Amino acid sequence: MKIQGDRPSGAQDAGQTQQVQKAAPQRAQDARGKAEGGDRVEVSADARLLGKAVDAANKAPEIRQDVVDRAKAKLAAGQVGNDAGRLADRLIDSLLSK
């Protein structure tokens, strides 16, 4: 094949160029057909529930001020922190009941 300027020479080359030009619109139409049908994703009920739980956790405040205030009041009243053995028993009981 001899190239002069920007065009190849020869009858066979010209035929190939026409075939490419004819095939291009067909490929574009095929691509549009696939895009119109589109892909689908189905999310399971468990995944939706997990997503809701994550959203709720992200929206919740990091510090529950009401719990902090109650703990401070109990500590100031002497209701918390006096009996380490009782605290240990309650912690163990709460873990065993789970």
Rank of each mutant, 00 (worst) to 15 (best):
D30S: 09
L50R: 10
V43N: 07
N82D: 12
G10T: 03
S94W: 03
L50V: 03
D13G: 15
E42Q: 13
A53E: 08
L50Q: 12
E42D: 13
D13C: 10
D93V: 00
R86G: 02
V20I: 13
Q16W: 04
G15R: 08
G51E: 14
R70G: 02
P25R: 00
D83T: 02
S9R: 12
T17D: 12
L95K: 09
A35Y: 04
A31L: 06
A35D: 12
K34C: 05
D55G: 05
L91N: 04
D89C: 01
A47D: 14
V41N: 06
G81D: 07
S44Y: 03
G10H: 04
V67Q: 08
A88Q: 12
L87I: 07
Q16A: 07
R32K: 15
A24Q: 15
A11H: 11
D46I: 04
M1H: 03
S44L: 07
A24L: 15
L75W: 02
Q26K: 13
Q19T: 11
A88C: 07
R70Q: 14
D55V: 09
L91H: 00
P8D: 02
G78T: 06
I63C: 03
A73I: 03
D55H: 12
G5H: 00
Q4C: 07
E62M: 09
V68E: 11
K59Y: 02
S9W: 11
V54F: 00
G81S: 03
G38M: 07
A45H: 08
L91M: 13
K98Y: 00
Q65L: 11
D83C: 04
D6P: 05
Q65A: 10
M1F: 05
S97P: 00
Q29K: 12
K72I: 11
V54P: 00
A56Y: 01
Q18C: 08
A77C: 05
D83A: 04
N58G: 14
Q12C: 08
